[in-house]
Amino acid sequence: MDAAKSASSNANWTASVDPVTKLLLILFFTLAAFCAQNLVEAGIVLVFTLALVFALPTKKSLWAMTAFSLFIIVTMVVIQGLFWPSNQTVAFHLGTIDFYQEGLKHALLLGSRILVIIFSTSFFIETTTLSENSRYLEKSGLSFKQVYVLMSVCYILPQMHRNLQKIRFAQKARGIQPAKSLWSKAKTLMPVLVPLIVKSFQEAMNRSISLQLRGFDSPVRRVPKSDRTYWQDRACHRLLAALSLVLVGVKIWEIICK
């Protein structure tokens, strides 16, 4: 969240967008991505979310998440390109193996959706200062519990990332080489995944206990003051909520018509 601190002090435009608007942007873009029927439409949505990403002051966690998801997307493209049930038209050959257009298109569409979600979510994460924005959300009427759940992405992911670094380092000391090729990367994922998941789980449990004992869901909680001002927050909320409803409507209409 140090990135977020520098964001707010640099008077970057992202700091004057309130957190609810940022969350609604995630919703809106995700819905738009799912409404996109073909690669061109999906591409347009992707470009808009890329624009958001370029406004970010630092993109550290973004690259990490994107790199990981690209790994998944490439795997999907390969598998769908080869084995999707509706495969008919051959796109290209790799030696004796045929990759099919329908499968590739389908995978790329799914892949672009994943990227849209990641980009819009990292816009929220990278420009959100935990304390200040949780105060905004609480002032807006959400209970602290709900605020906490919503904000959980902001601290769980960086924490997991930190744990990942520590574990990778410790594994390196045990002679597990950082992998170069995709296949060996997948092979060496297991030694890192196991301690990461266990650690994250234990940390989540400890946090839950500690928060409870510190009065997390106390009925007498007093909402902390906040001095920040945001640009046209109510108008943005209404606009994005309306647009999202329109998209939901479009999707429902589409399903009914089928």
Binding site: K5, S131, Y155, I209, S210, R214
Partner: peptide, 26 residues
């Protein structure tokens, strides 16, 4: 394990200590 008992929601050490106190309604 100390790190895992922090709220994760505090920007500063001050906020972290104050967290439970807000919950007490002070």
């Amino acid at each position: 394990d100390p790190a895992s008992q922090l709220s994760g929601m505090a920007d500063t050490v001050f906020d972290e200590i104050a967290f439970g106190l807000y919950n007490q309604g002070l």
